[in-house]
């Protein structure tokens, strides 16, 4: 989302990352990926030109949802899964505020799946950041809706038999106007993605691969490990072909409707590859990219989709403005509407 914010009178103080830190002790487990996301958020916010008092963080329940307590902004640590709905009420009535929803894989996709889906399809002008650690951390280690098949956890001692959800496929299925993915330890990239999410007008949905080093350590090693990450991830760039690999010698080509990994050279040139188009009005390409998973494919990171559509809050408020411009509400007229009679 993006916000045209009226600055309070006087010159705008230049804020630093530290200005966005609250006085509360951060209580995630040492080594948790959440720290890195918090740090990047504090770095990005001062660059947006939105005063702290016009920024609101809303979360549900889970480790990630402690986030608002650590930000020196307005915030609501709400109830499990409902942050998008809380944000809807706030944003519809206070459209000038910059509203962030911080959520996790269980919070957003399990208990709160319904709200997530509807906030996205309405294109509410908020930024949703989903910390995906593929596990329930706060409740100490049960499988989540993004845990892979076969995952052994406290509640799946014989391995999970549930097919996992791809958060981005869900968001794209709901026609999110901005969809991106980054990784907790990939700090520059994460900062870039958060900033772009903030700048987008309409709903922004960002999935961050986040390591839970206590209950699901190493879930994303394949994507973060220095020795292999250039083969297991692919950085999306608008208008550029999908190339990856340490030697940048591999690419993604479309074979009919399906992507395939090809090696460049041997008669295959860059022009044969799939070119990324984040502005494509149809969500088909973004969806196809969201389906590319390790180990068959490198997993795309970056901005999948960034298109324009009027935001829900702007449409709702435009109706209110128009109605008022036509005829401002008058209680006497409202009370006396319809047939009335007088008793003397």
């Amino acid at each position: 989302m993006s916000t045209d914010t009226q600055q309070p009178s006087g010159s705008l103080p230049v804020l630093q990352a530290a200005d966005f830190a609250s006085d509360q002790e951060v209580r995630w487990c040492p080594g948790c990926g959440d720290y890195s996301i918090l740090a990047q958020m504090k770095k990005v916010l001062p660059t947006l030109g939105v005063p702290r008092e016009n920024t609101v963080f809303i979360s549900g329940i889970g480790c990630s949802s402690r986030f608002p307590y650590y930000m020196n902004t307005y915030g609501i640590h709400s109830i499990h899964g409902r942050a998008p709905a809380v944000a809807t009420g706030l944003k519809l009535t206070r459209p000038e505020l910059s509203v962030w929803v911080i959520t996790g894989d269980g919070d957003a996709l399990s208990i709160g799946g319904n709200h997530l889906m509807h906030a996205i399809r309405r294109n509410l002008d908020i930024n949703i950041v989903l910390f995906n650690n593929r596990i329930y951390g706060l409740t100490k280690g049960q499988y989540s809706p993004t845990s892979p098949l076969g995952k052994v956890t406290k509640s799946t001692p014989f391995g999970s038999v549930e097919n996992p959800l791809h958060p981005l496929s869900i968001a794209i299925g709901c026609e999110a106007t901005f969809v991106a993915r980054s990784i907790d330890v990939h700090i520059k990239h994460l900062g870039m993605v958060l900033k772009r999410a903030a700048e987008h007008r309409g709903v922004s949905f960002v999935e961050v691969y986040q390591n839970c080093n206590v209950f699901n350590d190493g879930a994303f090693d394949y994507a973060t490990d220095r020795s292999q990450k250039s083969d297991t991830t692919i950085e999306l760039e608008h208008g550029k072909p999908l190339i990856f690999g340490k030697e940048r010698n591999k690419g993604i080509r479309l074979n009919g409707m399906d992507p395939e990994v090809v090696e460049l050279g041997k008669g295959i040139s860059e022009d044969d590859l799939l070119f990324h188009d984040e502005k494509s009005t149809e969500p088909t390409l973004a969806y196809l990219l969201s389906r590319m998973t390790h180990p068959e494919f490198p997993e795309p990171i970056g901005v999948f989709r960034d298109v324009d559509r009027p935001s829900y809050d702007s449409l709702v408020n435009a109706q209110v403005r128009d109605a008022r411009a036509k005829r401002e509400g008058d209680l006497t007229a409202l009370f006396n509407a319809g047939d009335t009679w007088t008793v003397n």
Binding site: V56, S78, V86, G89, L90, L92, T93, N114, H115
Partner: peptide, 16 residues
């Protein structure tokens, strides 16, 4: 979208 969103959206609006 449901009764829960109805009440929690009201909480968001009240906060605002």
């Amino acid at each position: 979208e449901d009764e829960i969103a109805a009440v929690t959206s009201a909480i968001g609006a009240a906060f605002g």
